[in-house]
Design a protein around this nucleic acid. Structure first.
Lengths: 142, 142
DNA sequence: AAGTTACTAGTAATCATTACTATCTCTAGA
DNA sequence: TCTAGAGATAGTAATGATTACTAGTAACTT
């Protein structure tokens, strides 16, 4: 009896789920659920927002994608699953990867300091992307 | 002509603003706006949610408190303004400080890697607090 | 084929936050 | 001291993001 090796929480790889995952992978960026929805609708015009949210959640729990809880506004998703960090533009909201490395043993240090059973960490840089940095100062509010 | 040295964005220290700041300082924890609202209402029963949000925002812009954009759910606020990091319990949502130190020059490294003008960073550990860790595994979903 | 479970579209409800409006209160200048 | 205008407030409405619900569909198991 052969069994597909799908992660626990995921019993089936449905067409919707597959298209959602592909959309995320192809988007390159770090899209919000809303953006993924737009992309998926090009292939599956009748997909519902709920399906997109549910599957992004399921894929994240299965460890196939990453949920990013960065800054204000909507949650973002990332098709890359190996550890890396992000930087967010305070002006335009763009999110990019950074390849900065943190010292190993950081989680262990946090465990020792806090007594928590540490599962991981998330690091976000904030600043202004090159495009926006150029215009800062020129912008007058109001 | 004497002038009170209030931060730019903040023309006056109103009673509401003062009570909000005190509530945050006394709470010790890292309360959400909702929790601050509860605390403030003990002193000012007629305060409005909008006033709480507006002032937390104003105080944060003035650099007198910190906004924390951590994990899912509501935003949290922190009366401490010197740099430190946080750890969040995945089970109960509790947020605590950690005294873990990061290497200096991290922001500079991020700037070089990304080309962004880096303003700062936020680091969050996630895991299970001692109380919840004890019960993990005992909990059966459904 | 029948029963069971996972999943879906469509929609409603909820939660967190922001925006709006009329009113009030400081402050500065005439 | 009176007054105009900016800043702030309470109360409420609106928005945006996410989750929950419902009835129906598709796939797997025996």
């Amino acid at each position: 009896m052969e069994m597909k090796q799908l992660p626990e929480k995921m019993a089936r790889m449905t067409p919707q789920r597959r298209v959602i995952l592909e959309a995320l992978r192809k988007s390159g960026n770090h899209p919000s659920a809303d953006r993924v929805y737009e992309l998926v609708r090009e292939k599956l015009p009748h997909v519902s927002m709920g399906t997109v949210y549910r599957n992004l959640e399921t894929l994240a729990e299965a460890g196939m994608i990453q949920r990013l809880e960065l800054g204000p506004g909507p949650r973002h998703y990332d098709a890359g699953i190996k550890e890396h960090y992000h930087i967010r533009c305070l002006q335009c909201g763009k999110i990019e990867d950074t390849l900065v490395e943190l010292p190993s043993g950081l989680d262990r240090a946090a465990r020792i300091k806090t007594g928590f059973q540490v599962v991981g960490h998330e690091l976000e840089f904030v600043g202004y992307c090159p495009g926006c940095a150029k215009n800062i100062g020129k912008i007058k509010i109001k």
